[in-house]
Amino acid sequence: MASPGRVVLEVRDLHAYLYTRWGVVRAVDGVSFALREGETLGLVGESGCGKTMTALSVLRLMPEPAGRIVQGQVLLEGEDLVTKSESEMRRVRGRRISMILQDPQTSLNPVFTVGSQIVEALRMRYADGVDALRRLAEEALRRVKVAAPAERLRAFPHQMSGGMKQRVVGAIAVAGEPRVLIADEPTTALDVTIQLQYLVLLKEIQARTRLAMLFITHDFGIVARMCDRVAVMYAGRIVETGPTRALFRAPRHPYTAALMASVPRMEASVERLPSIEGQPPLLHHMPVGCRFAPRCSYVDDRCRREYPPVVPIGPAHEASCWRVEPSPPSR
């Protein structure tokens, strides 16, 4: 694990709701976490659990006008982003917090060359002339291991493969030398061999720049490989947080444990996978008590009545479950 640096990003009791025709969707409903310099925090959960909405609300990019942050703080190096104006936020995005999305196709403009798009990103940071910026852009492409970077600057996105495009997106994301990088399933659209190349590249960039990374994924293989700590989200809330190894060795929340058990393993053959029955609740029809209660094998009456508190389990390891016994922080 990387040596713990200072906290760069801290999210405190964040509530971000979507006001829709069908009612209020509580997409992010009391999420708190801290992210340190040089550290990677994995945000794991199923689609619709609120992990992407968490990322978008950190950047204040919730879909308008339906989405709104109703409560909580997003502290970037001590400054609350929730209270910032749109023009102030524009100076935060790309320079201090960047984001890489799942599909590189949607992040790149098809009618501009790759070079002009990287130069545009660099211009936010540097006041140099176009020629100097183009040299920086070439350097940026070389750093994300794109072969023949000078020629590639003149290429359009459609002339590149998916893996190459995602590298360009990565180059643009780190061009402004941000402190925080949010990666939202950045390798889902890539093939496995290209995925590994890309993940290794992200780790190299992180080692060089001490970036804090928030890595959103539903793939436990990626978590095991990339993350120092993990936060598991279910139905708008974080149900368990802990150091990666502790969480894999001894998941304490029944949802974490069941989810991990239900994933087939590449490295072992199993006759039958235990599956989680039912499906996640609709975010505008949340159960009163614990949100996992309807699918939990250990459910009792209290779970159905009251949402469980956060229980400390071990060093930096906590879970929200009535069944978890608190253990003293030092083991």
Binding site: D191, T193, Q197, G221, I222, R225, T244, F248
Partner: peptide, 25 residues
């Protein structure tokens, strides 16, 4: 071998015998 090595096992302590392929298909 390369394809299987690139698949990430869901285990933080799994040995990492990275056989990272250069280039693309």
């Amino acid at each position: 071998k390369a394809l299987f090595a690139a698949a990430l096992p869901a285990d933080p302590d799994a040995p990492r015998d990275d056989l990272i392929l250069s280039g693309e298909v």
